[in-house]
């Protein structure tokens, strides 16, 4: 079984977000990058398939050489091989096309993307990729179990869960629930040493135009100070919410 996990290289969740070039690009100076949290849940689920069902796990990212430490981390966590598609990830459509080109060359039984990246927040690459490959896609996937070539799945919906089935190959949008926080694998020394020997190949990007262009970024407006109400005086809070904020 061949499993592909799509990895997005994103700023650490604690990062302060700043822009440069007249707000036209993200300022990565001083920013620590991590594996997109949703992708890490997906990677962990893939490693289970490797451990229990002998699956081969490949990780892929679309990005420049600065993404390689993240791919090495995935290898240290346990992925068998890594691929970097050498192009700036201009938009979700562009990334999905690059990933689709790779998937058409290789035969993956299962492709795992994250529900959403925490930088672009497109929540689009997985669904588009599946459509380009004419495969089923399951967004917000919180459970994946396999029996032969049939998968039993769960999707988180507003106010509950949906239970589904599909046959492989298939694309998942992983999120917390697929595995738990406590299941995440922290690379040990042996993993880190082994990761240095594992293959990390760089592939050329295919020719494709992005569907969207970012004109510029901006930061939210600074908000005023909090209005404090005395703990003994909840009436005042209710009054403010009713008459000033008009939300009750």
């Amino acid at each position: 079984m061949n499993v592909l996990v799509c990895i997005s290289n994103v700023p650490d969740t604690t990062s302060k977000i700043n822009f440069k070039d007249e707000n036209k690009s993200f300022d990565s100076s001083g920013v620590q990058f991590i594996i997109n949290p949703n992708d890490e849940f997906g990677l962990t689920r893939a490693i289970w398939l490797q451990q229990k069902a002998g699956a081969t796990v490949t990780v892929v990212t679309v990005g420049d050489a600065s993404c390689e430490p993240i791919l090495r981390k995935c290898l240290a966590i346990g992925a068998d091989q890594a691929i970097r598609i050498d192009a700036p990830p201009t938009d979700g459509f562009f990334v999905a096309n690059q990933l689709a080109a790779l998937c058409k060359k290789e035969n993956y039984d299962l492709i795992i993307a994250g529900r959403e990246s925490i930088d672009y927040n497109g929540a689009m690459v997985g669904g588009m990729l599946a459509s380009f490959l004419a495969l089923p896609y399951l967004a917000n996937c919180v459970q994946f179990e396999m029996e032969g070539s049939t998968a039993t799945l769960q999707r988180e919906i507003d106010g509950g869960k949906e239970i589904l089935s599909a046959s492989l190959p298939l694309v998942l949008g992983a999120q917390k629930g697929l595995v738990e926080e406590s299941d995440l694998i922290i690379p040990n020394m042996r993993g880190i040493m082994q990761a240095r020997q594992k293959p990390l190949t760089v592939e050329m990007a295919v020719e494709v135009e992005a569907a969207t262009t970012i004109q510029h970024f901006e930061k939210p407006q600074k908000k005023g100070p909090v209005r404090l109400v005395d703990a003994a005086d909840v009436d005042t809070l209710i009054e403010l919410l009713q008459n000033e904020a008009k939300v009750l």
Binding site: P11, I17, F19, I118, D119, Y120, N121, E209, A210, A211, T212, T213, I214, Q215, H216, F217, E218, K219, P220
Partner: peptide, 20 residues
């Protein structure tokens, strides 16, 4: 078509132009 969208999990916005 040009729209404002939130990104970086609400830590920022970007003005996005559709090329299609």
């Amino acid at each position: 078509i040009t729209v404002k969208r939130s990104c970086f999990t609400n830590k920022a916005f970007n003005e996005c132009v559709s090329n299609q």
